[in-house]
Simulated assay, not measured.
Amino acid sequence: MNQTETAYLVAYKFGERSVRGSSLSASKGIRIHLDHATANSGHVLFTVGRFPAPSEQDKIRRLMMTTRDGSYALLADVDDLGSKKIAPPEGYTVPSIWEDEDPSTIKGWFALSNLTPCKIEPGMFTSRTGNDLLVSLCGHGSLIYVPLPDESENNPTRLSVNNLPEKITLPDVSPSDHTPCIYAFFTESISTHERRCVFVGRTADFSHQLSDLSMLRSCSRPQSLISALDDPNMRIEVEILERVPFRYKNYAVDLQRLASRENFWIDCFQNRGECLEQLPAGNNLNFDTWTALKVKNHS
Results as ranks from 00 to 15, higher is better:
123 G>S: 09
121 E>T: 14
116 T>M: 15
53 A>E: 14
58 D>C: 11
87 A>H: 04
77 D>R: 09
133 L>F: 07
58 D>L: 08
64 M>K: 06
125 F>G: 07
132 D>Q: 03
79 D>K: 13
82 G>R: 11
57 Q>S: 08
54 P>A: 09
138 C>I: 07
100 D>G: 00
49 G>V: 12
115 L>Q: 04
85 K>W: 03
142 S>C: 08
72 Y>T: 01
82 G>A: 08
138 C>W: 10
55 S>D: 13
111 A>F: 01
76 A>H: 07
58 D>A: 15
109 W>E: 09
69 D>V: 04
66 T>A: 13
85 K>Q: 12
85 K>S: 15
117 P>E: 05
133 L>S: 09
105 T>A: 15
104 S>W: 04
66 T>F: 04
92 Y>H: 10
73 A>H: 01
120 I>L: 12
62 R>F: 12
77 D>P: 00
138 C>T: 10
89 P>T: 07
130 G>T: 12
144 I>H: 15
50 R>V: 08
132 D>W: 08
90 E>V: 07
122 P>F: 14
94 V>H: 01
120 I>E: 04
98 W>V: 09
54 P>Y: 10
53 A>K: 15
99 E>H: 11
142 S>M: 09
135 V>R: 02
145 Y>Q: 05
138 C>N: 15
135 V>I: 14
57 Q>W: 00
77 D>Y: 05
73 A>T: 02
103 P>T: 14
90 E>N: 07
74 L>C: 08
125 F>E: 05
87 A>P: 00
71 S>C: 06
50 R>Q: 15
137 L>T: 04
76 A>Y: 06
79 D>H: 12
125 F>A: 11
109 W>L: 05
141 G>A: 11
134 L>R: 05
131 N>E: 13
93 T>I: 03
74 L>D: 04
104 S>C: 03
121 E>M: 13
146 V>S: 07
70 G>Q: 09
121 E>K: 10
59 K>F: 10
119 K>S: 07
118 C>I: 07
137 L>S: 04
50 R>S: 15
86 I>S: 04
101 E>I: 12
123 G>Y: 06
106 I>W: 01
137 L>P: 01
70 G>F: 05
117 P>D: 07
136 S>A: 15
106 I>N: 01
128 R>A: 15
125 F>P: 10
69 D>R: 08
69 D>S: 14
